[in-house]
Write a protein that binds this DNA or RNA. Sequence first.
DNA 1: ACCCAGGCGGGCG
DNA 2: CGCCCGCATGGG
Length: 295
Amino acid sequence: MIYANDFNLRLSIESGQPLTFSSDYKAVGKKLELLTYVTQKGRIHVESAKNNSRDSIINFDYSGDYTRQSAEREVRTRLGLTDDLQEIYAKINTDQFMDNAISALYGMRVTHNDPWETTLCFLVSQFNNIKRIRLIIRRLINEYGEEQKLDGEVFHLFPTSESLSRATVQELMKCGTGFRAKYIRSVAEQCSNNVDLGKFYKMNYAKAKEELMELDGIGDKVADCILLMGYNKYEAFPIDTWIKRVVERVYFKGRKKSIKAIHEFASRRWGGFEGYAQQYLFESGRRNKIGKMVR
DNA sequence: ACCCAGGCGGGCG
DNA sequence: CGCCCGCATGGG
């Protein structure tokens, strides 16, 4: 059991982050959430006893080669519990809109995900919706992830880049990846040969983004998602259709702004924690359907 | 049936 | 640089 301050598991896993796409989770009744995370070492099964509250008691069990300590560390890291949320809120609570968003989404954290897992998830995400992203990732896991038997049940690990690079574009399309199949193929191949994703940890945000964007199918937005949720570079500010509309509406009186101008705005306003601000803008924009009435 | 979804690359002026 | 287009596919 872990006691976590300022944490809401439901919000954190339902806000379209990679752990949502690649883990099994479901609501049981109205207050229990489950998260099953399978790694090479074994399986971690998380349930939160409390929901919609400022603090959570996180119950979890584990099997395989995890020890109690390593499992707890995995849970804390992956759920973003290693960050001081109060400090982050102090930085991003710059106005009434953000203040409302923080109140409504209190305890939502940016999760910490494996870089390759994050890369694949956001390649799949482009011009797609969250429900279908989840469906496609689940198919890729079942089709290309190494099989593991734990507790008499069969699980699949998240597919490696090597595994996916052996597939043809046509085979990848059978999982519903559509026009993204060629990007997945290309990036998987690069990541299993000449590109070591680990190197981006050591680079600063700007340099890492520049190099990520050289990969096929990774543009401005996907690169920022990878850097934010895969490397926890909080200067990243992914701009999707939601964020663009929310920022234009809330901060520019509805006037159209370029991607470049929005990046500059975010950097000036939330410098250092743009990514956290983005997660709150994204989720509150979606919930309130801000900008749904476009021409 | 039609519309849209956590964009991107390529072609154009 | 900005603008516009096509792109695969499942769910509303």
